[in-house]
Design a protein around this nucleic acid. Structure first.
Lengths: 145, 145
DNA sequence: CTATGTGCAAATCTTTTGCAGGCTA
DNA sequence: TAGCCTGCAAAAGATTTGCACATAG
């Protein structure tokens, strides 16, 4: 899991702060640091708590693992991120909050976006009585040839 | 999670034994019991380890939780079942081994089959260079109205 | 100043494993 | 009989929580 993160430049900090503001999340030092790593360069990211924790350490920021968990949870609650369930043992978090398909690379355990224009349903079941469709998760599991 | 299981009749036992034989799994008392609960009436089932454990207890069978876990794993390895990842905190196991879509009822945490005839892709991305598609998981998340 | 967030360690929860004894082929 | 299974308890991982201290508004 060698995901690259945004580097913590001034621009990245600003982007992180704007993002937090958009979610009405109080910009503490730790949250700004994590937010910058996540959205500092505008790219979408798929991270695990452990991965983000290591990235923070690598960037020189001191954040505890518990805080990374709490913070990712807070970002999800604020609607800034989404939790994606692809692996029974680990949670993945996606900075893109739109419903879109994913590739899951089983060999490297990496999660990436699948080109959403290339996935289309021709039919979807109507939701059963009394229920509505909250989301449709599509995970395309890939294996190395 | 109030999933109903097959009752352990003679027919169910036979069905369970046949199923184990099909997977070349040695028919111990515990495995036959669990298999009967799972496929004794020919219906497809989606279970968690904990749920199957409770069903076994309720049916009067004495099986340890560790054995339920090991057994579900063994059934998957034998190709008799499939693990479905829908919830970060729990693993679900499906007696139907074909690639098919699921409904996940977020309110009750229940997993059921979606009518597979009613889900169709009109487009799927071609697998990236050097990779092949192992499986496409479709989980339709439902919420009560 | 007050409510919220943070860090640490401990707790929790699901799942796996080591090992001694039991059972199938 | 030999090897695979089972049960228990303990271990392992991921994630959450309690509590004392720190900090944003």
């Amino acid at each position: 899991m060698e995901i690259s993160f945004a580097s913590v430049t001034d621009d990245a900090l600003k982007a992180g702060q704007a993002w937090l503001a958009r979610g009405n999340v109080r910009p503490t030092r730790q949250r700004v640091a994590l937010a910058s790593l996540l959205v500092g360069d505008g790219a979408d990211r798929h991270v695990t708590a452990e991965g983000l924790f290591m990235a923070a350490k690598a960037s020189g920021e001191s954040v505890s693992l518990a805080t990374v968990y709490n913070t990712l949870r807070a970002f999800c609650d604020a609607g800034l991120m989404n939790e994606i369930t692809v692996d029974a043992t680990r949670s993945y978090f996606d900075t893109c909050t739109e419903d879109h398909p994913h590739f899951f690379w089983e060999d490297t355990q990496e999660l990436t976006d699948a080109p959403s224009a290339e996935v289309a349903f021709s039919r979807l079941p109507s939701p059963p009585e009394g229920a509505r469709i909250a989301r449709v998760d599509v995970v395309i599991r890939l294996r190395q040839n």
